[in-house]
Design a binder for these strands. Structure first.
Lengths: 369, 369
DNA sequence: CTGAAAGCGCTTACAG
DNA sequence: CTGAAAGCGCTTACAG
């Protein structure tokens, strides 16, 4: 059943059916209802390809990730984006890019590419070049967990600085004098993702609070693996470390949970032997008592999707975007800051001897079983 | 940049460029390479809408779920499907339907609907009507975690009967005389999803092993919620239960994990006061020591996606499907059975007094803190 | 308020 | 091996 068949049944022209189905106000209400009733009865569905081609839109919103879909953040974001976008005329099209080269190629092809009406980009750092390519494409771009506002028409940005300030203060108050930073090995060979901003920020805030370089140690998994083998290599390094930090600050809960579990398997008591702090407050963290920072991933995704739909409405006519571009309105209301909340749980405790000596003691005890 | 512009630059016709880009063997290799080089240099991308409309395909594969994307099974399946489909010419479109009415409407519109080339359906039970509608649509349909083979051109089916046999045997061997079945409240008001098959199977196998109806109790969350409030209502019922089963068999790990955590918060010791067994072996289960059954969700999704791409290749020409339809080849190699593995972990232990009295004792002790 | 017609950017018989 | 032309199923100025 095609539009023309519907037109025949309804005894009107093809144009009228198309207009009625789209709620064009030029079609009288009785006519509209009559046509809609026939369409419903026949279970008629417009061809997306044909509609898209004729209207010079794609009716697709791309959700760009540089991660796997079965991680907490990505699956939660996808769920949030989908639940909003499914209510619109657009389809959500998830896209995963695995290497910086793939990302470059994607951005380079954008301006010639009529295959997406909007892009929601998650968690990556856009280069100067990417920013230019996005601007040239005139495609609305919304950032989710973005690293800065540059290149976005709208963005949800975590207030990492505030979080890191709270983290540094809390850790100091608990008497920790040595701190380990555990980097989450982002899959896909990306280096400048949004998480990576947190650790340098945290370090500089700690320094402002009187910690010295000797108090810090960075831990990255040997082979860039985010799984059990990855945390094993980190534990090995931590054990043989000079500093042997009494608290480990991990970039994401996913990785902190794996690390926590492995530490316990190795016979370390958490937090007696070492404290662990994560970031995200994913549901598992709550179950296992991981101290962490809560980000509102689901609501942030809702916000991103709604903002995208708004931009698409604004720029509707002929994708004559540019007018609402980030460069023109840098501190627009479209840039939303998510203030994460610190969640103190049992994996974070006072440093040993903190009560009496205030510092110096290192957590070196250890119970192998 | 459009196909015609490329043709101008290359000094050939539009047809030749189109053929070259698709690797049509009629185009000479040197010509093909020359055209491809120009296309690469210009970062040319075909319009999917136009290609789709002209070729009467949609280049979309729909992944149909009746769940949220941020659950273990769905996000893992999506990851598995995507990683295979991204290597093809097709795009993966996730689709979530929330009510049986939405599902009906979707199936009804299928035959008139040229908006998808293939459908991968996850975890739901197809009615007779759905089966007919799918057959009439001539769209290849692959089942993932399917409830039966009916209506599918290919399917991955969990060997639930085998799993339930192992579960029943294990529970009996451990001396449990009372068993609770905890139903996972599937979101979206669906009643016949694949999980729901397991509990009746389990019950009938238990009966075959000598358990009576008085040994069983079914638990469903009061409000159909799968969250903490849901498990709270189940714990309340379990506490006031006549049977008060000494082992709770939960349909999915997601729900078992939430239940386990809540039981412990209430001061119940697991497994001393009550054993808990889940299903799925999701990564969290391993971390927290939940006894469960392992299903290979990621590999099953890979298999489903590959099978779909094969079907699409076979039926390529003009969607003249039907030749490979389930009805015609019921025990085809396209029906793949995943044998789940039982994973014994610490949440499942011997029933109290099982060693001496062999049964009868009920787990009624309880430590409130 | 409605219709006839051009056109969206490709693919693919058909002809050579 | 290559090209001219029809056509995929819609949308949307344009005309009335």
């Amino acid at each position: 059943m095609l539009l023309k068949d519907l037109a025949k049944v309804a005894g009107v022209s093809l144009s009228t059916v198309s207009r009625a189905l789209h709620g064009d106000p030029r079609i009288s209400e009785p006519t509209r209802q009559r046509i809609q009733a026939i369409a419903d009865r026949e279970h008629f569905v417009l061809s997306k390809s044909a509609s898209a081609l004729a209207s010079r839109k794609s009716f697709r919103i791309t959700a760009l990730f540089v991660d796997h879909f079965n991680t907490w953040f990505t699956s939660t974001s996808l769920e949030g984006l989908y639940s909003v976008i499914e209510t619109s005329d657009y389809d959500l099209f998830p896209l995963a890019l695995h290497t910086p080269e793939e990302l470059d190629r994607y951005f380079r092809s954008l301006s010639k590419n009529n295959n997406t009406d909007g892009i929601i980009i998650s968690s990556i750092h856009l280069s100067k070049k990417h920013t230019e390519q996005l601007a040239a494409s005139h495609i609305p771009v919304v950032g989710l967990d973005s690293y800065g506002t540059q290149g976005y028409d709208a963005a949800i940005i975590l207030n990492n600085e505030r979080s890191m300030t709270i983290a540094a203060q809390t850790i100091k108050r608990l008497g920790h004098t040595t701190i380990g930073f555990v980097h989450y090995p982002q899959p896909g060979l990306f280096r400048d993702y949004s998480y990576s901003e947190r650790i340098p920020q945290f370090e500089s805030i700690c320094k402002a609070q009187g910690y010295t370089s000797q108090s810090f140690e960075h831990f990255t998994s040997e082979d860039g693996r985010a799984d059990k083998a990855g945390v094993e290599s980190i534990i090995t390094r931590w054990e043989s470390s000079q500093v042997q930090p009494s608290v480990l600050f991990v970039e994401t809960d996913d990785f902190a949970i794996t690390l926590l579990s492995a530490l316990r398997e190795h016979g370390f008591r958490v937090p007696e032997d070492v404290s662990v702090v994560g970031f995200d407050d994913n549901p598992v963290s709550q179950l296992i008592g991981l101290a962490t920072f809560r980000q509102n991933a689901l609501e942030n995704a809702h916000y991103a999707a709604h903002t995208m739909l708004d931009l698409l409405q604004t720029s509707s006519a002929k994708h004559c975007a540019g007018s609402y571009h980030a460069a023109n309105a840098p501190d627009d209301e479209l840039f939303h800051e998510d203030e994460t909340a610190f969640i103190q749980r049992r994996t974070l405790a006072k440093a040993k001897g903190a009560a009496k000596a205030k510092g110096v003691t290192k957590a070196k005890t250890r119970n192998k079983h």
